[in-house]
């Protein structure tokens, strides 16, 4: 298995010039690349698939050169990043820098930093203050407000916006050319509509559709039915129509067979429910916030999500 198989990774921009749509951000960062010592810690905030991680990598390469990986620590939500990791792994990494190697500092990229506990963030804040000669942090978050205030005020914040239609369609077109895949313009626009400015989803949907032949609206629709997102939609439909047994079977398939993290199932359920016109959306948001809270509190995810499925009946619009 090679990463080249997956287009989302194969077509991840390697340079600033390849990055779509984020012109202002890129221009400011280019300035930092020229004068690395002027660069403060950075906080990238914005919706998924808009280039946050990509741009962090590009920036690291621009500043650190071809061997950037040796001087970069990348931690994402699937690594343990509790207070212990901050006090050991991160602290040690920032302790010294080998100036003879010609690099200005080391770089720590913390993806999904908004998922870190506030304890861990507080510990990190100290390190950010004390290590600024040796290291720069690039924190990446979907929602900047989940980052504690003292950290925010020590970072230059870059807000990423959803990508616009032209730039996504253009990028998809380029990919099709390189892959020798035939595609229709209306199909690419349709992909944009259903992925809502998330380039990661857009590229993935493109590749799924391309496995079926020419990229047409029809093939995009067919391929959409193959994602687990679609399974979640179907599960909601079953629960609302009263076939609770089938709905719950699907839930357990998603959790136990396909291994979807429970927060993702909850999130996809929420999006699915809010996209319908036969539910009371105010009641839905209250219901989902309760269940989200319960998952955080350490309740059993499968029991909670089963109960949530049962309760969907009660938020049907009257």
């Amino acid at each position: 298995m090679s990463s080249e198989i997956m287009w989302v990774e194969k077509y991840r921009p390697q340079t600033f010039s390849e990055v779509a749509n984020q012109v202002e951000i890129v221009e400011r960062l280019k300035g930092f690349a020229k004068n690395p010592l002027e660069m403060p810690h950075l906080l990238f905030a914005g919706p998924p698939g808009t280039g946050k991680t990509t741009i962090a990598f590009v920036l690291a390469r621009e500043i650190l050169g071809e061997n950037w990986r040796s001087y970069t620590l990348e931690l994402n939500a699937s690594d343990t990043r509790g207070i212990d990791t901050v006090r050991t792994t991160i602290k040690n990494f920032t302790r010294f820098v080998d100036k003879t190697s010609g690099i200005p500092y080391r770089i720590i990229i913390l993806d999904e930093a908004d998922e870190m506990t506030s304890d861990a963030q507080t510990a990190m804040r100290r390190i950010m203050e004390e290590s600024s000669t040796n290291a720069r942090f690039i924190l990446i978050a979907n929602v900047s407000s989940n980052i504690i205030e003292p950290i925010q005020s020590r970072c230059a914040i870059f807000r990423f916006k959803r990508l616009d239609e032209d730039s996504v369609v253009k990028r998809l077109n380029e990919i099709c050319k390189k892959e020798g895949v035939k595609c229709r313009e209306d199909a690419l626009k349709f992909i944009y509509q259903v992925t809502e400015g998330d380039m990661r989803k857009a590229i993935n949907q493109l590749q799924m559709a391309a496995t079926l032949g020419e990229v047409t609206v029809e093939n995009v629709k067919t391929s959409m039915a193959m994602t687990r997102e679609n399974d979640v939609k179907q599960m909601i439909e079953l629960a609302l129509s009263g076939d609770y047994r089938k709905a719950r079977e699907l839930l357990y398939k998603l959790l136990f067979i396909y291994g979807l993290p429970e927060e993702d199932v909850l999130r996809l359920m929420f999006t699915g429910v809010m996209g319908r016109n036969d539910v009371d959306t105010a009641a839905a948001s209250r219901l989902f916030s309760e269940y989200d809270y319960r998952l955080i509190q350490g309740a059993h995810p499968d029991i909670q999500l089963s109960a949530l499925l049962a309760e969907l009946q009660s938020i049907k619009a009257k």
């Binding site: 298995m1 990774e9 699937s78 391929s223 193959m226 994602t227 291994g259 979807l260 993702d264 996809l268």
Partner: peptide, 25 residues
């Protein structure tokens, strides 16, 4: 797990979207 090691994205995306693509491939 295999796919996750090769792409820089969260596990949820891998399980929900990349694995189904892999199945088709």
């Amino acid at each position: 797990d295999d796919l996750f090691k090769q792409v820089h994205t969260d596990k949820g995306f891998v399980a929900a979207y990349l694995v189904p693509l892999y199945e088709i491939l």
